[in-house]
Lab assay of single mutants.
Amino acid sequence: KTVHVDGVEYRFNNPEEADKFVKRLVKEKNGNVEVRGDTYHVE
């Protein structure tokens, strides 16, 4: 899984860790998540 945040790319081998990371980011930023294939885009 890959997570894109503000143009920075984070790669996770463990999908659960990627999910936790995304949830935390969305809370912090009050942002939205767009999923494209295996990539999460957080804005």
Rank of each mutant, 00 (worst) to 15 (best):
T2R: 05
R24Y: 11
A18V: 03
V3I: 11
R11G: 02
D38H: 02
N32T: 13
G37F: 11
K29P: 05
D6K: 01
E28K: 05
V8Q: 03
N32C: 15
E43V: 14
V35I: 13
A18W: 07
E17D: 10
E28L: 09
N14A: 02
V26D: 08
R24I: 13
E16H: 02
N13R: 03
V3N: 00
T39H: 12
P15S: 13
T39R: 08
V26K: 05
V8W: 04
F12C: 14
F21Q: 02
K23H: 06
Y40W: 12
Y10A: 02
K23A: 14
Y40A: 10
D6I: 00
V33Y: 10
E28G: 06
V26A: 11
E16G: 05
A18H: 02
R36I: 14
L25A: 03
V42D: 12
P15T: 12
N13A: 13
V26H: 08
D19E: 12
K20A: 15
E16A: 07
E34I: 14
V35Y: 07
Y40E: 09
V35M: 08
N30R: 10
G7L: 01
G37A: 04
H41L: 14
F12T: 03
H4V: 15
V8L: 05
E43F: 14
E9Y: 08
F12V: 01
D38S: 02
V8H: 05
V3M: 01
V35H: 04
H41C: 15
E9P: 02
G37E: 13
V5C: 08
A18P: 01
Y40R: 06
V8P: 04
D19V: 04
V33R: 02
V42F: 12
G37Q: 07
A18E: 06
G31A: 13
K27A: 13
F21M: 03
Y10I: 11
K27M: 09
E16Y: 04
K23W: 00
R36C: 15
G37C: 13
R36D: 12
H41Q: 11
V5D: 01
K29W: 15
K23R: 06
V42C: 12
K20D: 15
G7P: 01
D19K: 05
V35T: 05
G37N: 08
F12D: 03
D19N: 03
K29G: 12
N32Q: 10
N13S: 13
V8E: 04
N32Y: 14
T39N: 10
G31M: 14
K20S: 13
V42L: 05
E43I: 13
D6M: 03
E28A: 11
N13D: 14
K20P: 01
L25C: 12
L25Y: 04
D19C: 15
F21T: 03
E34H: 10
V35N: 05
E17Q: 02
R24G: 14
A18C: 10
K1Y: 15
T2Q: 02
D19R: 04
V22A: 06
L25S: 04
D38T: 02
Y10L: 06
K27Q: 13
F21H: 04
K1I: 15
F21G: 08
E16W: 06
F12W: 01
V33F: 07
N14H: 02
D6A: 03
V35L: 07
Y10G: 06
R36W: 10
G31V: 15
A18S: 01
F21S: 02
V8R: 05
V3E: 00
N13P: 10
V33D: 05
H4P: 01
V26R: 04
N32E: 08
E28S: 09
K1R: 11
V35R: 05
Y10E: 05
E43N: 11
E16I: 04
E9K: 02
N30F: 10
T39D: 11
V35D: 03
T2I: 14
E16L: 02
R24S: 14
P15M: 09
K29N: 13
N32M: 12
F12Y: 00
R11K: 11
N13K: 06
E28D: 07
G7Y: 01
R11Y: 14
N32V: 10
V33N: 05
V26I: 13
A18R: 05
L25H: 04
E28P: 03
N14I: 03
V42T: 10
D19L: 13
K29T: 12
Y10R: 04
G37R: 04
T2H: 04
V5I: 09
E9N: 01
D38R: 01
G7T: 01
D19Q: 04
E28Y: 06
V22P: 03
E34S: 12
E43G: 10
N32D: 06
K29H: 15
G31C: 15
N30E: 08
H41G: 07
P15G: 08
T2S: 08
T2L: 07
V8I: 09
N13Y: 02
G7H: 01
D6E: 03
H41F: 15
E34Y: 08
E17L: 01
R36L: 11
G7C: 04
E17T: 02
K23Y: 00
E34T: 11
Y40N: 08
D19T: 01
F12I: 02
K20G: 09
R36N: 10
H4W: 15
H4M: 14
E28R: 03
R36G: 09
D6P: 00
E16S: 04
E34F: 09
N14S: 14
E34M: 13
V8S: 01
G7E: 02
H4N: 11
Y40M: 09
V42W: 07
V42E: 11
V5M: 02
E17F: 00
E43Q: 11
R11P: 10
R24V: 08
E34G: 04
K1H: 13
D6T: 01
V22E: 10
F21D: 09
Y40S: 11
N14Y: 02
V26C: 15
T39L: 07
V42N: 12
E9V: 10
G31E: 10
G37H: 07
G7Q: 00
D38Q: 02
A18D: 05
R36H: 13
H41M: 13
K23D: 12
D6C: 15
D38C: 08
R11T: 12
F21E: 04
E17S: 01
P15D: 10
D6L: 02
